Amino acid sequence: MALNTPQITPTKKITVRAIGEELPRGDYQRCPQCDMLFSLPEINSHQSAYCPRCQAKIRDGRDWSLTRLAAMAFTMLLLMPFAWGEPLLHIWLLGIRIDANVMQGIWQMTKQGDAITGSMVFFCVIGAPLILVTSIAYLWFGNRLGMNLRPVLLMLERLKEWVMLDIYLVGIGVASIKVQDYAHIQAGVGLFSFVALVILTTVTLSHLNVEELWERFYPQRPATRRDEKLRVCLGCHFTGYPDQRGRCPRCHIPLRLRRRHSLQKCWAALLASIVLLLPANLLPISIIYLNGGRQEDTILSGIMSLASSNIAVAGIVFIASILVPFTKVIVMFTLLLSIHFKCQQGLRTRILLLRMVTWIGRWSMLDLFVISLTMSLINRDQILAFTMGPAAFYFGAAVILTILAVEWLDSRLLWDAHESGNARFDD
């Protein structure tokens, strides 16, 4: 018995066209964080690309023209004298008006014999932002004059995390709450300039795509075929072959399989920071003279006294001054041990922890910024005066060393310790 099946006739004509040209192939790229070699397709503007294995951002879609970056830099340069030299806060102490600005706080630190601690604050609040705007201006002028731009481009990517104007702005709020127990506070004209400078700096850093600047100024022929001998440069993120001198053909720094002496430098910085954190938390970090009496505060006791007036601000200072430094030390110690013992479990967790400490590390400088600003506000000789204690130097040095330890660690070593050939990683 035959089955009668109805015929289905399409209502619209289906047209099949042959592909007349070869589909576009992607360029081969190595991930600078996990060293995976993959094919990167062509990316349009405002599109980002991520590593298929570790999800690290390979290409950032946010990109401004150099002219727009230069305009932002010149605007920031105009704001800087007002943000640093004009009063941020006014207080009335014992019937006398006192003005506080950024430069005055750094000068008070240096004047009291601790120039190293003052230079830490100076670099993060004044030096690094000033280098940022002058570097962008150098790129703008240098591109037109045919100057060598490689050193500036190499420095810009590392400079971003040292620009800490946003953290200093939080420190202004913390210092205001600490001082309000002794005097009446009012915002100064410099505060508005400083807030504007923070906003412009944040926007500029978020749109400063150094890798795209490398592509514009020093374009290189990408690798179009897969080759395990391809290496990625950690300076400019170019994937290719080393030249005859073993250097990256684009930025001219040595092109090595792994960062040289990464573990040794990381261990040295980490152990030194552990040693410095002990006096930083045991010795007094601030000293207040009130009517001839002397009151010393460690980091913890200062947080407890701050909690009596504002528990939320005390929580912020606790996280930045105690929780973050010790968390960074514990995480980095764990990561280094996992590399030495070739741990194969929990790779995803370790990668996330490394990215976390990379982002939060700079916030530990908050305590030094609060001390710097408070020193310029309260300084009335023996009637009422505020000065920093010996722990300030140890704390600042420990924070900087932990930042350097994270920067010096080559994250690809975590993958080397893991089993080879993993296309995915999980716990």
Rank of each mutant, 00 (worst) to 15 (best):
L88V: 06
V406C: 12
F38H: 08
L373S: 04
N4G: 14
I199M: 12
L145R: 04
F194E: 15
L37M: 15
K328H: 00
V152D: 01
M1C: 00
S48P: 04
F38C: 08
L373C: 03
S193L: 02
I116M: 07
N379F: 02
L401M: 12
V152M: 01
T298W: 04
V399E: 01
A307T: 10
P279H: 02
I285A: 03
D426L: 13
L69M: 07
K178Q: 05
Q264A: 01
V133N: 02
L132V: 06
R25Q: 11
R17N: 10
L78M: 09
E86P: 05
G105T: 04
K342W: 12
F333M: 14
P32G: 08
H340M: 10
Q186M: 12
S305A: 11
A269Q: 02
L368M: 15
H237N: 08
F238M: 05
A391V: 02
S65H: 08
D410P: 02
L3Q: 11
I383T: 03
M120N: 03
V357L: 10
I98E: 04
L94A: 02
M155L: 04
M356D: 06
I360D: 00
K229Q: 09
W84I: 08
Q7Y: 08
F386T: 00
T327S: 12
S338D: 12
A2Y: 13
G246I: 04
D166H: 15
M164H: 06
C51L: 00
T9A: 14
F341I: 13
L132P: 02
E42Q: 10
W267Q: 06
G240D: 06
R256K: 10
R225G: 07
S286H: 00
L336W: 06
A70K: 12
F123R: 00
M1G: 00
C251M: 00
Q220D: 04
F318T: 04
K328E: 00
Q47T: 07
L414H: 06
G26V: 12
I400S: 05
K13M: 07
T67E: 05
F386P: 00
A417K: 08
V210I: 12
R226I: 10
L335D: 07
M76P: 04
W92S: 03
S301F: 07
F74H: 03
L77Y: 04
P81M: 06
S39Y: 14
Y394Q: 05
E42G: 11
R294V: 04
N4A: 08
I14D: 08
G188C: 05
H418W: 09
D227K: 08
A269S: 08
E86A: 10
S39L: 13
I330Y: 14
V102P: 05
D181E: 13
P129K: 06
E407D: 13
R17H: 07
L352C: 11
L336E: 03
S176R: 03
I14A: 13
E211W: 06
G293S: 07
G105F: 02
V357A: 07
A280L: 07
L300W: 10
F194Y: 11
S206H: 15
L352P: 07
L205T: 14
T202P: 07
C343Y: 15
A417L: 06
M332P: 06
A18L: 12
L263P: 03
P325S: 05
I126T: 05
S338T: 13
L368E: 08
C34Q: 00
Q186Y: 11
S364D: 00
T204N: 12
I253E: 13
W107N: 15
G20A: 07
V357T: 11
L337N: 09
V317M: 03
I322W: 06
K111E: 11
A183N: 15
K160W: 02
N148W: 03
R158D: 15
W408F: 06
L336Y: 07
S48D: 15
R225M: 12
L306N: 00
D60C: 13
P284W: 07
K13V: 12
E42L: 09
T9D: 13
G146L: 03
